[in-house]
Simulated scan of single mutants.
Amino acid sequence: MSTPPLNQSPVGEASSSANTLEREAIDRCDQKMLELSSKFPDWYELYDETLPDNAPREEVVELLRTAPNDFAMGLLYGKFTMRLELEAMTGRPFQ
């Protein structure tokens, strides 16, 4: 008995569909990041230099506080809450 190619199986179709949806979502976010960099260059430069995935808590809070639009605020909120989760899982303080 032979196995059908992935692109002909329901699992393959679901996977392909999921990949397409993922790519579309990432493309939309990439566009929003480009808009941030062009519409708010000073804030974006600070964001880019701060590296909020590793920055001290006070710097992440400052970026969150000064976020110029809802997308930027959501981006920083996600990074902030991920850092809180990492703190809870690892015991390493987010200071």
Results as ranks from 00 to 15, higher is better:
residue 1 M to C: 06
residue 2 S to L: 12
residue 5 P to I: 08
residue 6 L to G: 05
residue 6 L to I: 11
residue 8 Q to K: 13
residue 10 P to A: 02
residue 10 P to T: 03
residue 11 V to R: 08
residue 13 E to Y: 01
residue 13 E to N: 10
residue 15 S to N: 12
residue 18 A to S: 14
residue 19 N to Y: 09
residue 19 N to I: 10
residue 21 L to Q: 14
residue 21 L to D: 08
residue 22 E to W: 14
residue 22 E to D: 12
residue 23 R to L: 10
residue 23 R to H: 11
residue 24 E to R: 08
residue 24 E to N: 12
residue 29 C to V: 10
residue 31 Q to N: 10
residue 31 Q to P: 01
residue 32 K to W: 04
residue 33 M to P: 01
residue 34 L to T: 07
residue 35 E to K: 08
residue 36 L to I: 03
residue 36 L to A: 03
residue 36 L to K: 00
residue 37 S to R: 08
residue 39 K to R: 14
residue 40 F to H: 15
residue 50 T to S: 04
residue 50 T to K: 06
residue 52 P to M: 00
residue 52 P to I: 00
residue 52 P to W: 04
residue 53 D to C: 06
residue 54 N to G: 02
residue 55 A to V: 03
residue 60 V to S: 02
residue 60 V to A: 06
residue 61 V to W: 00
residue 62 E to K: 11
residue 64 L to W: 05
residue 65 R to W: 00
residue 66 T to A: 00
residue 67 A to S: 12
residue 69 N to P: 06
residue 70 D to T: 12
residue 71 F to H: 07
residue 72 A to L: 05
residue 74 G to Y: 06
residue 74 G to W: 03
residue 74 G to D: 13
residue 75 L to P: 04
residue 77 Y to I: 15
residue 79 K to M: 14
residue 79 K to N: 10
residue 81 T to I: 15
residue 82 M to N: 12
residue 86 L to I: 13
residue 87 E to C: 04
residue 87 E to L: 01
residue 88 A to Q: 11
residue 91 G to L: 01
residue 92 R to L: 11
residue 93 P to I: 07
residue 95 Q to I: 06
